[in-house]
Nucleic acid binder design. Sequence first.
DNA 1: CAGTGGTCTAGACCACGCG
DNA 2: GCGTGGTCTAGACCACTGG
Lengths: 243, 243
Amino acid sequence: MTTRAARAAPRYAQVAADLRAEIQRGDYGAGSAMPTESALCARYGVSRFTVREALRQLQAEGLIRRRRGSGTVVDPDGGSALRQSLTDVKELLQYASGSTYQFEPVGPVVLSPQRARDLNAEAGERWHLFEGLRTMAGHHRPIAYTAAYVHDAFAAVVPKVRRGETIFRQLERLGGIKIAKVTQDIRAIGAGAREAELLKVPRRSPCLSILRCYVDTTGRIVEMSLSVHPGDLFTYSMHIDEV
Amino acid sequence: MTTRAARAAPRYAQVAADLRAEIQRGDYGAGSAMPTESALCARYGVSRFTVREALRQLQAEGLIRRRRGSGTVVDPDGGSALRQSLTDVKELLQYASGSTYQFEPVGPVVLSPQRARDLNAEAGERWHLFEGLRTMAGHHRPIAYTAAYVHDAFAAVVPKVRRGETIFRQLERLGGIKIAKVTQDIRAIGAGAREAELLKVPRRSPCLSILRCYVDTTGRIVEMSLSVHPGDLFTYSMHIDEV
DNA sequence: CAGTGGTCTAGACCACGCG
DNA sequence: GCGTGGTCTAGACCACTGG
């Protein structure tokens, strides 16, 4: 039944999704061996290329570790909720699963010189601002305050943006574009007056600031967002393989 | 002359290095087209697989951007000194090129409960401490204070560790192991008494803290390092492709 | 429409880990 | 020595971009 119906994902993505589900279901004990490449080729009826592409994806997500000569094993840290890989955008979005994010449109704004400097943009430009707080079940203090700026080229679709899905995904769908790259600049800052009030932290207390720029396939900056996290509530975890 | 002499890097790495040098030399104007895959196949006399593997590496480093149907272009931000990709360990090490790093062995230490908590480790364990400062040409203030802890299993090689090369590379060589993974936890903290003094910042001022764990192929933590950067001098930049 | 990069096959040889 | 994953070849078809 591989008829039409949405033209389906590539084979390697399907294999990866299947194996990811098995890993997270715990079919292979943490630290224990997974099937070899040739076994997976037989099981899915695909070539080694396809299997390796799927495994490459899982490795990038930090779920598995591979060694020439010995084999493929499930990464013991990989499943831990504490160390959540964020090198992948899919996880970058749903990061801190169990958290909820509420944002509201504020309206069009013209960047002040101060804001422009924070955002690494030009003063005087017109952007459409959304403000939001991310809260975590069980915490009375928010874990993030976010200001998101959408480029004026999308003024027509801004009123259609809804909660429940990330802004940039909606811009892709409503604006007919595709985000090709996300850049992140991570810094430590002292809480400003507004952040301090909303995040319920003392003014000037250490906060993690994450500036994200969403770039489409043609290289235009479509959206910028500036998130501020209380230093005591938030850690950005990542991993790097193939040193 | 591809005789022996160190068994050489894989072909795709050589192709990648060659293209990287050309890009950084400015042979292709930023934003302009690079040779197509088939052109590179012909030029280097290799298969498309090898060329694609090389280009995949350059893409992961943020140097190029690719689009089906149109082609491969040099990423306009990629060459910028301001936005330096750090998703690759090679750059993670020589990050902020132009900076110098001086460290000194302090000796064996037994982790206090406080330190153990900072490092996410067990109190009472014995580690070998190195302390260092990273300074940048033209700045009178250091951009980082680093405390690096080497596992007691490497007590024998600790006295042989020298400046001028990263500690973990020396552990690989001297200890006969291989680092397979590096994890990073990035947080915002307030400067403690010692950091404040060494970094010449006020106490409790916002700083970026980076805790790195170096894990070998068997899953053991070989080294941990805790770097503290003044918030106003240091930004951690990264990028994510294939959203 | 021709040409690009994305996916995929069926082979091959090799370096490495382990028994 | 055997099986693992890492590298590599020479093909193929497809989706997409652009003129």
